[in-house]
Simulated assay, not measured.
Amino acid sequence: MGGAAPATRQRSAVLAQTLRGLDINDYILIGYSLGGRRGLYHSCHGQDPRLRALYVEGAHPGLADAPACRQRVQHDMGVGAALCRRPAGGGVGRLVPPADV
């Protein structure tokens, strides 16, 4: 995670600044996917003693090299394109089972 994108470092700093500005003295971060990745970065590098806990679901610390990053982007673009080609009513809703209400 040391090679985090500048946007990740910047968002960690903005988060700390925002919480200070709101006078929040302790907090828990909850992150999913990219939010989890940013939470991982913030908890490891943000150096904020007010952070009490981090809950993460479906996050990954990141890929180490440029070829792996390019391969992941190509894969994700392919998945996105496949979802866009689905007929109306057959998109993401078909991927997520309906909740029992």
Score class of each variant (00 low, 15 high):
Arg85Lys: 13
Val56Thr: 12
Arg70Gly: 00
Gln74Glu: 13
Gly93Gln: 10
Ala5Thr: 03
Asp48Met: 05
Gly31Ile: 09
Leu22Cys: 04
Arg38Pro: 00
Gly2His: 12
Leu19Lys: 07
Tyr32Cys: 05
Arg11Asp: 12
Val79Trp: 04
Leu83His: 05
Met77Ser: 08
Ala5Met: 06
Pro6Thr: 05
Ala88Trp: 00
Leu54Met: 08
Pro98Val: 12
Gly46Arg: 03
Asp26Lys: 13
Ala59Asp: 00
Cys44Tyr: 07
Ala59Ile: 02
Ala53Asn: 07
Asn25Ala: 15
Gln10Lys: 11
Ala68Lys: 02
Tyr55Ala: 14
Asp65Ala: 06
Gly78Asn: 08
Gln74Lys: 11
Gly80Lys: 10
Val73Pro: 01
Leu51Asp: 08
Arg86Ala: 15
Asp65Tyr: 00
Gly31Thr: 09
Arg94Trp: 07
Gly35Leu: 07
Ala88Tyr: 05
Val79Phe: 07
Gly39Pro: 06
Ala99Val: 15
Leu51Lys: 04
Glu57Tyr: 09
Tyr55Asn: 03
Leu29Pro: 06
Asp76Val: 05
Asn25Lys: 15
Asn25Pro: 10
Gly89His: 03
Ala68Trp: 01
Arg50Gln: 07
Leu63His: 01
Ala59Glu: 00
Arg85His: 13
Leu22Trp: 15
His42Asp: 09
Tyr32Gln: 11
Ala53Trp: 01
Gly62Asp: 10
Cys69His: 02
Ser43His: 00
Asp26Ile: 01
Gln10Trp: 12
His45Asp: 04
Pro6Phe: 04
His60Arg: 03
Pro6Arg: 06
